[in-house]
Amino acid sequence: MFHIYCPYCAEYREEEEFHPRGQAHIARPADPEATSDDAWGDYLFFRDNPRGVHHELWVHAVGCRKFFNITRDTRSYAILETYRMGERPTVTANGPEAVPSATATLTGALA
């Protein structure tokens, strides 16, 4: 049962108030019609499953209803940080420089 710091409510809240929405920083291709079937399929269906640091999109569903990101260690379940939409993570598997460029833009929703 996670204890999650909501960056908008500015306090720790119980997991029951949240919904996980999968991997974070999946941006919708800017021009879908110009996107190949393969690339579109990747965007829709393919997700990372790392052992270790992972960035996830969550929503404070029973609360402020805001979406935000969680950086979580999938081994220990430790939540390393939470950050608002549009912000970059400061904790990544290989240091801040390894953050995919998509994080510089706004993050995307799940298909």
Binding site: V59, A61, F67, L106, G108, A109
Partner: peptide
């Protein structure tokens, strides 16, 4: 409602 919010908050703020 959550669907509308996710698109608004993450893709089209």
């Amino acid at each position: 409602l959550e669907w509308l919010e996710i698109w608004h908050q993450t893709e089209w703020p």
